[in-house]
Design a protein around this nucleic acid. Structure first.
Lengths: 246, 246
DNA sequence: TATTTGTACTTGTAATTACAAGTTGGAAAT
DNA sequence: ATTTCCAACTTGTAATTACAAGTACAAATA
């Protein structure tokens, strides 16, 4: 009761429900809880972490929304089987969803300042058009094989030294958060199946021409008003399905 | 304060936060609120509907999670642009852009009792294997053109007269809810891009062989413990992308 | 005029209390 | 031995209160 933890003092503190969520999530993905195990009941979690039920329930809501647990009235919160695919369909990120498999990220196009592409799948504001964008692309490999080619466009607000950063094997989101205080909140995406569109992408993904690939167009929300990240992805799903909950 | 509405009396009542969610959602898709409009503030909604802030916030949480609004601290809840694609990636997706008039559902394989397919993408419990399954398939058309072919498998619990039901132009979920009190809660899905796998499906979707299609494998949760619906979908995304938020 | 400050809003987080509703398992009755 | 019932859990819904933090705008200040 009288002990203040670090987060209660610091200005950029993480909410308590968020901390509990992270803790439980880590316990689940680390295998501390296994499939069909019951989590401690809400009241037990309250006592364990010195929180109240609404706060605990907010953490469990997050876990439930992301498919880590399933709650049953009268029974408890049941741990869900961990997904086998790539969890790119939800915000949690590629890195966590791949699991223990070897994930690698390589920069293909280094960050540079350009104007927006002629044909862009999302409508841009006048301000976005005016300032142009930071453009770069990365390739994600699972066990050494190319799986996702991610082409990114970020409106050119002031991001000092961004083009000098090494994006290999790092999460873009983490860099944005730690270096620029930009928090990624979610977004919208359009998905279709296409044949690999051009020889460049075939070469990058190491696939034959006319192999079917998933095509994703995403607009990603941030904590800054009217500041979005844009991303176009090509996924070779022959070995790895994309996984999502709904 | 003293007026009891219908839901407070009835046994199968709908929670108040759910009712408010439905109301606001309808207002948004009907165009009462337009893109970038501000919803009434939480306190205003409290007064308007005689609710308290936690209840109102639960309704807004739902809208936010489903991408209908975006909330900004200090500003308010901003109505999001309605999606252009087919909102099949989430459980309560909209097909607003297409419009109800232009949506049609045809039964291709009529419901019948069979055993499970030899190769099934999800692992089945002993009980599920034992009872076999109800099997049927439907085709969704937009403006008369086939877009989604949906092959469904439902474990054969006692569903009286199910095979006699007409699934055309009706929501399977509505039938399950009203006739059998089975509520659909969400689920998990695996997505990949493939070439149209066999002549039957090419014919049904009216596409040429080797056209790339989206392949979805879904397991759908219900309010009954250990009772899942299974669905395999083939989507021709050449004219309509699938839409989702994350 | 340009800048700063403050105020009145907005949503975000959190504790507290109360009861409803579903599940489980053991005690009591048959 | 079997069934019924109840008590003790579980999660679900809801009201209430309080303060923190972000935004917008107008007033005061430089």
């Amino acid at each position: 009761m009288f002990a203040l933890n670090i987060t209660e003092m610091s200005p950029g503190k993480i909410p308590q429900y968020r901390q509990l969520y992270e803790t439980l999530r880590r316990h689940i993905v680390d295998g501390l809880y296994r499939e069909n195990d019951l989590l401690p009941s809400e009241n037990e979690l309250c006592k364990l972490h010195n929180l109240t039920r609404p706060t605990v329930r907010k953490a469990l809501d997050l876990l439930s929304n992301e498919g880590f647990i399933k709650r049953h009235q009268g029974l408890g919160s049941v741990v869900h089987k961990l997904p086998k695919g790539i969890g790119i369909l939800s915000i949690s990120g590629t890195t966590t969803a791949i699991g223990k498999e070897n994930l690698e990220t390589r920069t293909i196009i280094k960050p540079s300042l350009t104007s927006w592409p002629d044909s862009f799948p999302f409508s841009l504001s006048d301000h976005e058009k005016e300032v142009g964008c930071m453009h770069f692309s990365r390739l994600r490999l699972v066990n050494g094989k190319p799986v996702i080619y991610d082409i990114s466009y970020i409106p050119n607000i002031n991001l000092p030294r961004f083009s000098a950063r090494n994006l290999d094997n790092k999460s873009l989101f983490n860099i944005l958060r730690s270096a620029y205080r930009i928090e990624v909140k979610g977004g919208e995406q359009y998905i279709k199946a296409i044949n690999a569109p051009d020889p460049d992408i075939c070469r990058i993904l190491d696939i034959k021409p006319d192999t079917p690939v998933l095509h994703l167009q995403r607009r990603i929300d941030t904590n800054r008003l009217n500041f979005y990240l844009y991303s176009i992805l090509y996924c070779n799903t022959s070995d790895h399905s994309l996984y999502g909950i709904f």
